[in-house]
Design a protein around this nucleic acid. Sequence first.
DNA 1: CAGTATTTTATGGAAAACCGTAATGTGATA
DNA 2: TATCACATTACGGTTTTCCATAAAATACTG
Lengths: 222, 222
Amino acid sequence: MFKKVLVAEDFDSINLGIEQALKDLNIVDFQHSKYCDDAFLKMRKAILDHEPYDLLISDLSFKTDHREVKIASGDELIEQVRALQPNIKIIAYSVEDKGYRIKSLFENSGINGFVLKGRNSIEELKKAINLLAVSDQRYVSSEIATVIQEKNNYEIDDFDVLILKQLSLGVPQDDIGATFKELGIKPNSKSTIEKRIAKLRDFFKANNTVHLVAIAKDMGII
Amino acid sequence: MFKKVLVAEDFDSINLGIEQALKDLNIVDFQHSKYCDDAFLKMRKAILDHEPYDLLISDLSFKTDHREVKIASGDELIEQVRALQPNIKIIAYSVEDKGYRIKSLFENSGINGFVLKGRNSIEELKKAINLLAVSDQRYVSSEIATVIQEKNNYEIDDFDVLILKQLSLGVPQDDIGATFKELGIKPNSKSTIEKRIAKLRDFFKANNTVHLVAIAKDMGII
DNA sequence: CAGTATTTTATGGAAAACCGTAATGTGATA
DNA sequence: TATCACATTACGGTTTTCCATAAAATACTG
C-alpha cells in the first residue's frame, strides 16, 4: 500500500471526504494542498528530504482567487509532477467527463488512474488506490470506461478548436483568416475557414454557427 | 440550534465534508439525499410524521444518471420545499457564483442563505448555520456579497433570456418570432427580436450574435 | 515523372443577419 | 379626449454568412 500521499484539491468539503477514504485504507501519512503551487513545492521538498510521496491525488480545476499562482490547473500540476518524479502514481479525481479530455490525461499527462467525482466516487477512489498500489494497470471509473473508447470517426483537431475559439470571441469569419495569417497558421483562406465551420456544424448537428458555439461551450471544448 | 437537518448533495465526498461540519456544531439528527426526489420525499414524510426538518442544505446542480427523476435541480427542489414547508430555513451550498443567479435564488426561490463552495466553505457553512439558527437575516458568503449587489443599470429580463436560449438552440432570428407567437409570448415581431438582440449585444459588448451567446453561456445565463 | 486524389483557395449568388428610420400601437396623464 | 412618451412593428438597404461549384496547389502513388 502507499506510504505517503499528497492530495491537491481546493474545496475543503471534498478534502474531508478524501481524508476519510485514506483513513479507511489505513493510510495515515497524507497531506493536502489547496493550491497547485503548494502541492508542487511539497512534492519537491519531500524529494529533497528523501521522503518522497508515492501517490498524488489531484483535482483538475482550481478556483482562482486573489492569490497569484504559477500552476493554475491540475493538468499542469500533473505534467510537472510527472516530469519531476517519473515513478510516482497519479490519480486524477475530477468531475470532468469528456472522453477527449480524459484520454489526453492518460496519453499526454501520464496519469495512472482517473476517478470521476460523483455519487459513489469515494468507493471508486479507494478501488483505484488499491489497484495502483499493487499494479501498473490503469484505473478508470466504470462510468467513464465506455465513454473513453468512443471513436468518433472524425476527430476534432486543434485547428477546429482554434476556429471555435475565435468564433466565440466574436471574430467575424473574414477576420479569422486574417488573424491566422498573422499568427502563421497555415490554412487561412476565407474559403477554408468557411468549410471547416460548415464541417463542424455538420458534425455537431448544429443549425447555424450560433448554435455551434453554444454546443461547443456546453461540451467544454472552448 | 437546528434540531433536524437534511442535506441534498450528490457528491459523496462533499457529503462527508458537510457531515463533519454538522458534527462540529453538535447536530446529530441529519440525513442526506443524493437525489432531489429523495430529498423531497424525506421532507414530506418528516412532516407527516410530525417531525419536520428545520433546515435544508442543498446543492444546486445534480448529475444526471440512469435514474429518471422528477426534480432535476436544486433550484426546483428548493422552490418545492419552500412551498411545502414555508417556515423551513434553506441554505444553498454551491459553486455557482453568478450574481444574477444568486439574487434570483433569494428573491424567487426564497433561500435564507447562500454559501459558495470553495477553499474555506465549511467554515462559512458553519457560520451560516449559526446565524440562521437564531435570526431571520440572510447569510451570503463573503466572496459573493460584493458581486450580488452590482446593479447593472439595465437588467436582463426573462424575455431576454428566452431569446438567448432560442439563439443557443440554433433557432434563426426569423423563426424566434414565429415560435413566440405560437407560445403566446407578446412581443414577437422580427423587428423586436432584432432590436432586443442588438441591445443585448450592446449591453454585453459583443461583436456579433455568436459572441453574445458565448458570453451568455460563460455567465451561466443560459 | 505522370497521374490521381486531397486539400486549399477563389468566386458568385442566395439567405440570413445587421442597422437605421419611419410608421403604428399602447398606456399613462391631464 | 387629446397629447405625450414609449414600445412594437414595418420596411429597405448594407453587410455578413452560407452554400455550391470550380480552379489552383499540394500530397500521394505507381
